[in-house]
Structure formats: C-alpha cells, structure tokens
Write a protein that binds this DNA or RNA. Structure first.
Lengths: 342, 342
DNA sequence: TTGAAAGCGCTAACAC
DNA sequence: GTGTTAGCGCTTTCAA
C-alpha cells in the first residue's frame, strides 16, 4: 500500500490545478487568498505531504544535506561528539524541511578513494549542500570535488571564525584572573588535540608580561590512582599551582577531590577548569567551569547557513548569519582571582 | 552544474537500451555477459551513479531507512549511545547501498503529535523500513502507523530476543563464581535503567539457593568524593563484599582505586564489573570487566534485517539473520572466584 | 535476451 | 492569479 495520495488529489479536492498547489507549498506570493485557503484545507484534510524524491527530481533541490566525517580508527574514540551533532543537526534541519545524510569515510582512506566515495554519494543523493567535519574539512580534494559539482560546502568553522584554542584561551583567562602558576593536565582522546592545547597553553605563559614563573605540566593522566597522585604531588608543596587546567572532566573532578582532602578550597585556593564539558562538572561541589568548542552549536549553525543559502531568492539576499562563539566558557563557581600570597 | 550524466548516457556509450543498463545495476540475470561487460565498462568510464530520487520514484524503493528516536529531555544525557549507533549504522547500510535518515521526536511528545510527525516523514521520505529505538519502540501508535503504511519495522530487540537485564546478568555471573556478598552501586544516566538493574540484582540475590546473606546497595554514587567514601565504608570492615557491580565505569574505577589503597587485590580479594563499557576500563590496571547491551551491534543487525527483507526476492527466502547477543560480557581480568574465607 | 512505451509525483517555463 | 505543457532519471510492463 503506497502513499497513494498525491498533489493531484489535493488539486482536485481544492478545485485548482496542481500548479497552484505547488505554489502554495512553495510559498509563492502569486496565489489568491481564497485559493490558498482551499488548498491548505485540502492538504490538511488529506494529510498530504509532498514527496521528497519527486520534488528533488523536478525541482533540482533534494533538501538533503550531506555530513561528511571520518570514522574513528578502530579501538579509539571519535574526536567529535557525534551524538550531540546528530541531535542538534536533525532538530535544526527538520524544522526547515531539510534532512541530514551522514557519510562516513574510513579512517586513513586515501584522498583518491575518499573522493571517489564522496563522488558516488553526491551522484546518488544529490545533496543541496555538504558539511565537512574535521579532519575532513581540511581535505582539498573533497572541497574541490564539491566545488566542481557546484555543491555548497560548510565546515564547523566558517571563514573568519577560525577554531579557537581551548588550552590557550583557558590559560589566558586564568592569567587575566591574576594566576601566575597554572597547571595543565593532558588527557584528550585525540593526541593532536592535546598537542594543540598544550602549545596554546605554553604560548600564553611564554608571553613576556605573563610573569608566570613556573609551569606545571603533566603530559597525561592515565588512571585514577595516577591522577590523584599527580594532584597531590602538585598541591602539597608550598609552591603549588593556584589554577589547574584539565583536558578531561574526570581529571578535573579528581583534582577537586584531592584539593578538598588537602583543605584547599575551590576556588579560593585553587581555580579549576576543564577543557571538556560534562554533566558531572555542573553537578559537583562546587560546579566546575569548562571551556570547550560548542561543536553542536557550530554544527547547527553550519546547517543553517547551507539552508539559508539554498532558500535565498534573488530578492532576499541571505542575511548575515549569527555565528556561535568559537569557544564557549561554561562559567561556574570554580574560577576566582589568584590569592595574594602563595 | 547538475550531475548531467544519466542512464541514457551510459546506455549510449554501451550501445544498449537504458533497460539493459537498468538490468545490470539491478543484478538481473537476464543480461548477456557481453552486454553486461560493456555496460559495466561504460558505467566505470563515465563514473555514473544512479540517482536515488529517480529510483525511488520509478521503483517504489527509496533505499532509505528511518531511525526514530526520542530526543533527551533538555539537560539530561541521551540514554542511547547515538554516536555509536550512527557509526555502526551508516557503515552497515552504505555497504548495501542504503542510507539512514534520523527522525527525532521531542521528548514527552503526545502520542498523537508523535504519530503526526512520523506520518509526515513517511510521506516525504517514503523509507523502505523504520527502526524504532527505545523508548519509541514501545509506542503502539507508531507501530500501528507503520504497519498501516506497509512499512517494515524493527527494534533493537527482535522478537524472541528480549532485552537482557545487565544488573541481573552481572549478579548471576558473580553468584556462579561463588560470590555471596555482592555490592551494587547505581548511577546510570537514566533512572529507569537503574531501577531495572537493581530489580534484576535483587531478584538474583533473593533466589532461595543464592546463599547471599547480605546485600550492599548504594542507590547512587554522586561525585567522586562520595564514591570513594562509599567504597571505603564497604571495603574496610571485615564483613565486606567480595564483588561489586557498578553501573558507571567511573564508579568502578574509583572502587578499584580504593581497593588498591586498602591492599585488596583485584580480582583476588574483590571482583569488579561495570554495567557500561568505556575505553578507560580496558586501560586500567587490572582491566575491568563490563557487561552491557551492545547497542551498536544490535542496531546494525536491525538495519541488516530490514535490508534483507527488502532485497529478498520471492525466489530467495530471507535466511534467518544472526542475532547478536542481547548482553555482551567484556571479560577482563577483574573477575575471579570468590575467596574461600572472608 | 533485449527494447519500446508508459508512467512515478512534482516543478519550471510558458501561456492565458 | 491561474492553468497548460514538458520533462526530471529511473523502473515497470509489455512486446519482440
């Protein structure tokens, strides 16, 4: 039993031609109010929904956005919160009558193979736009292919809004709060990310006016025991960090626990910030601040841009879209000015 | 610049009719080897990929599977590992020329509204099948709608393979290892899940031959400090659990830490198992066992079933698909027989 | 084994 | 403002 009901049925029920029905659903102004009302009534009565496939064929607009991403290497965690992107993206798109199609490239696929795979998908689905998720967003061949096919392409970081460096931003923020001894504990799932964060952190502390006279850096926090041990070794001595940046939320929570067991109050004696947000951070006592890339918001915004570009008529130039912040600070009670003395 | 290249171009290049090209890509046996070869060559030369939209219109098969799920209530975590499902599902489907479309229902939407939303999507996308993720899999109106539209419907738990109860299975497993004093620490993101796990755990220990003479149950492990404190309060006394089930991986890791600090060897003196798998569990010392629902595998299997049903010709009855286990035990070095004495 | 014809449900480009 | 005419790229049905 196929859907059966088509534009033709609606046209008949409303006593107009299919074209008029088409105009109504496409928001053409050139329809009389009466006709429009009758058509809308008929649509509601019949419960008709236009077929995407038919609209795609006839109109050249598929209302499909392709999301291209690299699958994680086996055994390792995805660098992106795919579930969050999925939730945010589907909500954004479905509100505008668009849908998302996800295209997974095998990790470490050769550029030629990746291009071939993308080409096949473009041919099959004919998406109206594509979103290249990192690290695919830096693949020239993919971008070239999209351009040659005339398919709009977006990334999480639109032109003029380069990705922020959470490590750098966190260090900067703490520095501005007067901290001079800032610790950094690595642990991001993606080693490349740790490298960047660490580089940013070091860059900030190396500024000539930073007056940071000692770095506390742990390249990695493996298990809980090691993390607790590390935190203790940092916090027990008289000369200790007054602020700590932890890449992982779990690490920040462990440090918080050690601090409390040492009678160091957060944030009075120690400021804490994580480079990953997690519900557990907001639930701890005190809630811990986080500074992270708002991937889901950036993704939604990318979807919006593609849709706006496709929907824009010559008459209505697309208005400059609102860009979400590149980095988002979840300011919670774990940050304070550095104590006077140490 | 549209895709331009169509079946017609391929037909010309291969000097056959479009019909023959169609037969080749649809694996019809009624094509001569020569014709098939020429067509395949032409397809490769031109880099042609048949349009999904056109095939959908003409053939009535969209090669689209709809994934219906409830979005999480604002502020809470999704109960399902959506990212994992996305990875597994897209891989499975794209290998067979199918694609996944995700449909998010607002949490707590009324049945009528949910049905209307699904109906709209069915009309627009005309998917070949649908997968209802929990808790949508229990919504009668949705299943009825799908059935009335003749759309195949699957869930993670196929008929005859009801969802397992991780709490019950873990308790059973530990009981079989001779443990009589088994602790349970709650903490699943979804309260309903905790309730089920706990009920299963209690059911097992209530068996007349269980000989479990004391229950250790913590309804919830909030932050790290509380978890460590709880573990200590359980493990210091002479009468202590010889095995602990932790809903969260982080909880299990915290317990492990406390055990080691108390010179209790895992698994010699204490067996540990988590009801959630996480890379950190495999990386700890010793690696911690996990017992969980293999959601991604179940999801892939559901996709396979839908595709197999759609592809099956009258000649080839669909072979009974392999069902993944309902629960998966990641057996790691943290489980052992109960010590003789306590 | 192959081909010709007739759509699938919709929109673009024209008339009126 | 509205209707008419042609397709979009493929599969189905039928005939050869």
């Amino acid at each position: 039993m196929r859907q059966g009901i088509t534009i033709e049925d609606v046209a008949k029920a409303a006593a107009v031609s299919r074209q008029t029905v088409s105009r109504v659903i496409n928001r053409s102004p050139r329809v009389s109010p009466e006709a429009r009302a009758r058509v809308e009534q008929a649509i509601a009565d019949l419960g008709w929904v236009p077929s995407l496939a038919a609209r795609s064929m006839a109109g050249g607009r598929s209302r499909l956005l392709l999301v291209v991403f690299e699958g994680p290497p086996p055994g390792s965690e995805p660098a992106l919160p795919l579930g969050d992107l999925l939730l945010a993206g589907t909500a954004t798109c479905s509100a505008q009558g668009y849908r998302l199609l996800f295209e997974q490239l095998a990790p470490g696929l050769s550029p030629a193979a990746a291009t071939a795979q993308l080409a096949a998908t473009l041919g099959a689905a004919q998406p109206d736009g594509a979103i290249l998720l990192p690290p695919a967003d830096r693949a020239r061949p993919l971008r070239d292919l999209l351009e040659s096919r005339g398919i709009a392409c977006e990334t999480l970081h639109a032109a003029g809004h380069p990705p922020g460096n959470p490590g750098e931003a966190a260090a900067q923020h703490l520095l501005a709060l007067g901290h001079r001894q800032i610790g950094f504990i690595a642990g991001a799932p993606d080693p490349a990310r740790t490298r960047d964060n660490l580089a940013g952190y070091r860059r900030v502390l190396a500024q000539k006016d930073s007056r940071a006279h000692r770095h506390f850096v742990a390249e990695t926090a493996t298990d809980l025991a090691a993390t607790l041990e590390l935190a203790r070794s940092w916090l027990v001595p008289t000369i200790r960090p007054t602020a700590i940046i932890a890449e992982r939320a779990a690490t920040a929570l462990a440090v918080l626990h050690v601090a409390r067991s040492l009678k160091l109050a957060v944030p009075r004696d120690l400021s804490l910030i994580a480079l990953e947000d997690d519900p557990a951070l907001a639930g701890s006592q005190p809630p811990l601040a986080a500074l992270h890339e708002p991937a889901a918001a950036l993704f939604s915004a990318a979807c919006e841009r593609l849709i706006a570009a496709r929907e824009a008529t010559p008459a209505s130039p697309p208005e400059p879209p609102v860009m979400p912040l590149t980095l988002e600070l979840a300011e919670r009670a774990s940050l304070a000015r550095a104590p006077r003395t140490i």
